[in-house]
Simulated assay, not measured.
Amino acid sequence: MIIDAHVHAGEYYRHYSARFAAQMTATTGMSPQELSAPEAKLLAEMDAAGVDRVVLLAFDVRRVEGFSVPNEFVAELCARHPDRFTGFASVDAGTPGAAARLRHAVTALGLSGLKTAPCYLRMSPADRRWYDVYETAQDLGVPVLMHTGYTPSRNADPRYFSPLLVEQVAKDFPGLTVILAHLGTPWTRQCVDLLARRPRLYADLSIFGSYQPPATVASALAYARDSGVLDRLLWGTDFPFASMTGSVARMAQLAHDQGLWPPGSAPLSPPEYHALMGGTAERLLARTALPGRSGFPSEPMS
């Protein structure tokens, strides 16, 4: 099974502002109008790339950016395609009632995790205003996918880009599963080191795996393997910011082309490739699945 662990729901103009779309696509070669993932386009991209399932993300940045991709919208898409979409809610801890909104999204809407955007909301992920949200996620047994690393959004606060800010959260919530988005780009080595210190942390390769030179991606994967955390990395694209078809092809190359890898490092083995491209995500989502949520049949927590 191939699972894209980081896909944005939402459509240009209907959800994203023109200003935000222009900023976010400025360095991608895309037009702002391409920052859109309507249902038919998303399913067609998945089919073309051979992707079985995606983690589909809500995105609450209304307080700062003036828009959101609502939890209800994501839940409706997941309800129509439960075999293809697993939905994550999004809440803003800078607004009252965030923890209650997360609980409602999981228990009433059937969503399976939480997406947070700390730097977009001009808040550290370790800001204490998040703590009742984390407590709720830990209580519900759902993972938290946190944006880490750079973003071209001009309203985002660069003080909160670093993945190392998440270490305090991991200390304070030892039972919480956290996925660091984008491998903390450009702080990828620090992100891997953080995973090595904190066993409940994971990271996804979205944007990093799609746009960095393949040799750079291979070097990061080799470092993760040597650090003992390759089995906690998840393939993802950040679609529609990057194509699934192109990223799948790049990842397949990393399983075959020795020339991309650092001296002394082998390409991805078949088990490593299959874990990275979906096996790890499948196990992670299955461990946190409960009846009524989109996802996979549940299995006992290890």
Rank of each mutant, 00 (worst) to 15 (best):
G66K: 14
L195D: 01
L42V: 09
F67N: 08
L35E: 00
G278C: 07
S206C: 15
A137C: 10
P70W: 07
T185I: 12
V69G: 10
W187G: 02
M146I: 14
W261D: 02
R84T: 03
L121F: 04
P38I: 14
R62A: 13
A196P: 02
T177Y: 06
E45S: 13
L234Q: 03
W235M: 11
G264F: 12
R80L: 14
H182Q: 11
A215N: 05
G236F: 00
W261Y: 06
E76F: 05
R84A: 03
L111W: 02
S36L: 11
A255G: 06
A170I: 09
A222Q: 03
I179T: 07
A252D: 13
E167N: 06
A49V: 04
R232K: 11
V54C: 14
T95G: 00
S153L: 13
D231Q: 14
A281G: 13
L102A: 03
A100I: 00
P240G: 03
P300T: 08
A40N: 10
R250I: 00
Q258D: 01
V248I: 14
V142G: 01
R84G: 05
A137S: 06
L77S: 12
T185E: 09
L201N: 10
L254N: 02
G278P: 11
V142R: 04
H15A: 03
P82A: 13
E299H: 09
S68N: 13
P240A: 09
P270L: 02
R293P: 08
L164Y: 07
D47E: 15
A40H: 12
A75G: 03
P271A: 04
A18Y: 05
P186A: 10
L180R: 06
Y13R: 15
A126M: 07
A9K: 05
G149Y: 06
V166K: 01
V192H: 00
D4V: 09
F67S: 07
T86P: 04
G110Y: 05
Y273R: 14
A26K: 12
F20M: 12
V144K: 05
S17T: 15
A255V: 00
M30L: 15
A218E: 00
R200C: 09
T107I: 07
E76S: 10
V229A: 10
L183H: 10
R189C: 01
I207N: 03
